[in-house]
């Protein structure tokens, strides 16, 4: 993603590239990203990583299509990075 700050999570950069590729349209990029994840976390880790990506590709659509709001207590807890990352721009784009 543009302006990606990277990650301190173990194999984080490899996993982020895998998520980007799994939702992208380039099969060759996805094939390379998949093999990188397999080398990093093994076959079982690859399967579980792909499962999380699939699950969130579905649940984000549920959240957006039903218009559910973030709970007030969660919004308060995340207000600092919500603002820092300008996540409100997502709301401004809605039609």
């Amino acid at each position: 993603m543009k302006g990606d700050p990277g990650s301190d999570v173990p194999h984080g950069d490899t996993l982020l590239a895998f998520a980007d590729a799994a939702l992208g349209g380039d099969k060759a990029v996805l094939d390379r990203a998949r093999e990188a994840v397999r080398l990093a976390v093994g076959d079982a880790g690859l399967s579980d990583a792909a499962a999380v990506i699939g699950g969130f590709d579905g649940i984000t659509r549920i959240a957006e299509a039903t218009g559910i709001p973030l709970e007030p207590e969660k919004a308060a807890q995340t207000a600092d990075f919500f603002g820092a990352l300008d996540i409100g721009r997502f709301r401004r784009a809605k039609t």
Binding site: M1, S7, V9, P10, H11, G12, L15, L16, F18, A19, D20, L23, V41, G42, A44, G45, S47, D48, A49, V52, I53, G55, F56, D57, T60, R61, A63, E64, I68, P69, L70, I87, G88, F90, R91, A93
Partner: peptide, 22 residues
């Protein structure tokens, strides 16, 4: 087979790619 932090990193990335505010 991946840890909590790795799972949440993936989840957050997919949410951002899909521009999900929740």
């Amino acid at each position: 087979a991946i840890g909590h932090a790795q799972i949440e990193l993936l989840a957050a990335r997919v949410a951002a790619l899909n521009r999900c505010e929740y």
